[in-house]
């Protein structure tokens, strides 16, 4: 399967990557190889088979609707960000 430049740029947009021009050809080749390989699955008959999305043996794990004590403080979490102001995370203006 051929992956065009437009398709790579579309996938990069979905992935939120600002790709460098120098990355595009290599990624196209890699993705063609990978998608070529996974397409082998087409030869397996899955007619009438139900999909399995998870292999955990339990469903509907309930817990009480209570606020658990938090392990990290607001200050500790804010300290992880690059910029803070007035006890908030600071980002460039949006509008």
């Amino acid at each position: 399967m051929k992956i065009t430049r437009e398709e790579i740029l579309h996938l990069a947009k979905l992935s939120d990557f600002d790709l460098e021009e120098s990355e595009i050809d290599g990624l196209s080749k890699n993705l063609e190889d990978i998608i070529g390989y996974i397409s082998e699955l087409n030869t397996l008959d899955t007619e009438g088979v139900e999909p399995t999305y998870q292999v955990f043996e339990m469903e509907n794990i309930w817990r009480d609707d209570e606020i658990l004590p938090q392990e990290a403080t607001r200050e500790e979490l804010l300290a992880l960000t690059t910029e803070q102001a007035q006890d908030q995370i600071k980002v460039p203006k949006v509008l």
Binding site: L11, S15, E20
Partner: peptide
């Protein structure tokens, strides 16, 4: 978009893009 593009390695990007595909 720039933090993600610079912060991830090529293999991270390949897998994320294949996932989105």
């Amino acid at each position: 978009s720039k933090s993600r593009n610079e912060g991830f390695m090529s293999e991270n990007k390949r897998r994320i893009m294949v996932g989105n595909f």
